[in-house]
Design a protein around this nucleic acid. Structure first.
Lengths: 248, 248
DNA sequence: GTGGCGATTATGTATATACATATTGAAACG
DNA sequence: CGTTTCAATATGTATATACATAATCGCCAC
């Protein structure tokens, strides 16, 4: 079977050549024309096919490799990778934005604030090795009159000492931290849980009712910054994640 | 204040020059040294700073732009972007892999299989405009002796007609589809729910117990392929998502 | 002033070239 | 027969160069 031709369809958009090479190849991979394990043409073959320099082909292939669609091996060539584990981009918006997107007035109310030295549980949550000052916060996010989410947060004051002077009475710590601490890494855990009495009371739902729990741990330059747990009544929240393979 | 110097620390790893330029700049952005809106040095300035060609600098800056950390404007320069919405990569593995990662034997068991013309609810789930043949499947994923997840799936037979001939008695439709239909887009919804009697019975948990629900809709070349709902008992599953800004 | 216009400038893309590096396959050798 | 060596090869990185394109600045005419 002969080699596939470069795209003849004119997108009527001026795209650069390396972009066209990239999307041609991506198309053949996603359509299944080139199955996982298939060796895609060598750079010098694509160079001939598209009548361009190797640098241009290289740019396209390097990007495909970075996107994880192909794997490149010296002396051997470039190969279509096994379908990678399905990964989706999960957008995690600020709760205020989420509530306002529903057309409801947003309000935050602090329930508890406690400055203390970290105990064992705190160190587990923050992945701290040594004890040190932390700030424990609990608060409620409201959508209109109804509780929208309960927030339980631990801040590592060794990393963000200024936070110790804040009251966080009516503003949540999330936006405050984002403005001050550039975070370089975050980890999320998402699970379901049934509300215990305290949570049910705070969220004004029945004890035992299902809740969605989103926990986030954040680091800035290797230092743990904060651990936060958002507890949503099941009715109030759905996370949405979209996936489109590699850069469109 | 004078210009920051190129990294002097030797990683004792040989990294390419454009990689070093990239991570130098990323570091200054993430550490807050260069705040959003700040104009980063022109290509020709970085060229002088790193004593390299413009192509090398350009490679680094282009990647930073693609990663969304900076914005480039002709004639004006490159600027640090406002902090983008927090996005995390959510890995959604095959259930068999998840179960086997726990060191437990995996087994799938079909509960129900029904070929029919799509009703209104089916068309909503698949986002179909016209009626057509669909396949409804319900099955249980086991980890050892215990039910791990309940799967409810709808397959659009207009898009994957071969699926109509499969029994899916002991193999789940997920892996089968992945091998045959290259999917180009997917949407996930994640929420908490309490088990109704049927679900509780299937999963061998108490009615009303909290469950994590992950729904996935998949398209291939604009055509809806399948809608699947995984229902996990709250104890059995936690989703993990990690985020590190731009390519490490 | 202000409206248009050309010069300037930074980025965008592409080329030809060069050398480095990893890996393979085959030849040479003990 | 196994091992070592070496040349061939595909990719990885970098350079100098060229021209295109978009945006801005400043000049000049009105």
């Amino acid at each position: 079977m002969s080699m596939a031709e470069p795209t003849e369809i004119d997108d009527s958009e001026t795209v650069s050549l390396h972009q066209r090479i990239l999307s041609d190849i991506r198309e053949r991979i996603l359509s299944g024309t080139w199955v996982p394990g298939h060796r895609i043409p060598f750079e010098h073959e694509l160079t001939a096919e598209y009548k361009c320099s190797r640098m241009t082909v290289n740019k396209a292939l390097s990007q495909l490799a970075k996107a994880g669609l192909i794997e490149r091996r010296r002396r051997s060539g470039s190969f279509v990778r096994q379908p990678q584990s399905q990964a989706a981009v999960l957008e995690l918006h600020d709760i205020r934005i989420e509530v306002e997107a529903l057309g409801l007035p947003y309000r935050y109310e602090r329930l508890e604030r406690l400055k203390r030295r970290s105990n064992g549980e705190d160190r587990t949550l923050l992945e701290l090795s040594a004890t040190g000052p932390v700030l424990w916060l609990e608060g409620l996010h409201f959508a209109g009159e109804r509780p929208f989410a309960l927030e339980q947060r631990l801040i590592n004051l060794s990393a963000v000492s200024e936070a110790g002077d804040e009251e966080f009475l009516e503003i949540a710590a999330g936006p405050w931290l984002i403005d001050r601490v550039p975070w370089s890494e975050a980890e999320h855990r998402i699970r379901a849980m049934s509300a215990d009495d305290a949570i049910a009371d705070a969220l004004d739902i029945d004890p035992g009712a299902p809740c969605l729990v989103v926990e986030r741990r954040t680091w800035s330059a290797e230092h743990p910054v904060t651990h936060v747990r958002f507890i949503y009544p099941a009715e109030s929240h759905t996370l949405v994640a979209r996936f489109t393979p590699s850069q469109g």
